[in-house]
Design a protein around this nucleic acid. Structure first.
Length: 401
DNA sequence: TCTGGGGTCCTAGGACCC
DNA sequence: TCTGGGGTCCTAGGACCC
């Protein structure tokens, strides 16, 4: 078979559940739900992953946990984060990189590979895809689904068709025929809003979408329409980009109980900005944009961004900016359901500016030392101590567990 | 006892500049 | 008194993904 391009999509089946089962064999064969919110709080949590046994009861991911427990009372609930999922992501990545350098981790449990140039070492694409699947199973114990096709979109559709734990091949030239019977929702990136609009135009299957033609889809959906059409017929991208630097970092929390006390919220902001600062320094990045997100009990959600000049990764600067920003955005009365803060627009520090004075150099050394030695909690206390000694101490102390 | 947390990409409109 | 057009940067928010 002649493959002009050969893209493999690797998808770990029920990833969090599979990892938990490696650590606790008793979970095998049972309905298992991994989920929860902040600090293991189940009240406002959702399903992060669920086993096939629980799906038989109608449970699916992103469903409120309370609803999932009603549908499947016998399910075993495992708090998300009990095991170290990142460790398994790294192990899978290492295995994939033994096949080719062209590996793109699209999420912790998903990857794309470009098989060009691997035939001498690993044989033709179908054989290589088999090897990838068996090697991940043998070396990690994780079930994995594999799709092989000429483009990213087709490979992802193929891996879904192969579930659970299979291999599905879309041969070159067979793309349109394979997708025609599928629902339009099977096309990656075509979500519920777009599906609804297309249904309104009597387009329900990818066959109907293809028959509608590119022009009509552009009239219905704008520029996106052309992209859906091209990807459906197998003319989508075959570009695999080995994983990039993060473009943004954020953290957010939905509170078990809504909170309306300004000082308590400032304390949450302090902890969140410390976490962001530490992650930025670990990556040696400086952030040029701060983002703030708040959600009120009625689910109204506001997001705001503003520039930080000069760029920074200093906890205290991030905290003061976030706090001032928050005080300008919050109405001061309505309690919050959710608070989030993030950074973006990363780049290099402006040399010789931020740390010009002796105080600044001292703080930089302090932060570096703390990052290298301490636990996050220990860091938070020590850095807060230093912030209090600064010339303009923040108004409210952060809350510590 | 409705609706998590972490991301990416795209669009639209305003400000500003030439 | 008039008032184009293009480019770029910035912010807000929508849609989507796992």
């Amino acid at each position: 078979m002649n493959w002009p391009t050969a893209i493999v999509h690797v998808d770990m089946d029920t990833f969090f559940v599979s990892v938990e089962r490696l650590h606790d064999r008793s979970l095998i064969g049972k309905p298992v739900i991994v989920g929860g919110g902040q600090d293991g709080d189940l009240r406002r949590g959702v399903v992060a992953a669920c086993s096939y046994e629980s799906r038989a009861f109608g449970v699916h991911s992103a469903m409120p946990l309370a609803q999932a427990m009603r549908l499947c009372p016998e399910a075993v609930i495992v708090p998300v984060g009990r095991s170290n999922y990142g460790e398994y992501t790294s192990r899978v990545r290492t295995i994939l990189e033994s096949f080719t350098d062209l590996v793109e981790m699209a999420s912790p449990d998903e990857a794309y590979l470009d098989l060009r140039g691997t035939d001498l070492l690993h044989g033709e694409p179908i054989g290589a895809a088999h090897h990838i699947r068996s090697r991940i199973a043998a070396q990690t114990g994780l079930p994995v689904s594999i799709g092989l096709a000429t483009t990213r979109t087709q490979a992802k559709i193929a891996s879904k068709l192969s579930k659970p734990s299979g291999l599905f091949v879309v041969a070159p030239g067979g793309e349109a025929a394979i997708v025609r019977p599928l629902s339009i929702s099977a096309l990656p990136g075509l979500g519920p809003k777009t599906a609804k609009r297309l249904n309104g135009a009597n387009i329900r299957t990818l066959g109907q979408l293809i028959d509608a033609g590119e022009e009509r889809l552009v009239r219905l959906l704008g520029d996106h329409g052309a992209s859906y059409y091209r990807r459906a017929i197998g003319k989508g991208s075959a570009q695999v980009t080995p994983s990039r630097e993060r473009l943004q970092i954020s953290t957010e929390a939905t509170f078990g109980d809504d909170i309306g006390e300004r000082e308590l919220i400032h304390g949450k902001l302090a902890r969140m900005t410390m976490k962001l600062g530490s992650q930025l320094r670990k990556r040696e990045q400086w952030a040029g944009t701060l983002t703030l997100k708040i959600r009120y009990p009625d689910f109204t959600t506001l997001t705001r961004r503003e520039g930080i000049e000069p760029r920074t990764n200093d906890d205290t600067i991030l905290y003061r900016r976030a706090r001032d920003f928050f005080d300008r955005v919050w109405d001061g009365a309505t309690p919050l359901r959710l608070l989030g803060v993030g950074v973006a627009n990363m780049g290099d520090a402006v040399q010789g500016d931020m740390f010009e004075d002796e105080d600044g150099r001292k703080r930089e050394r302090l932060l570096q030392t703390l990052d290298s030695i301490g636990s996050a909690k220990g860091n938070a206390r020590l850095i807060w101590g230093s912030a209090l000694e600064a010339k303009n101490p923040p108004a409210a102390p952060p809350e510590m567990e």
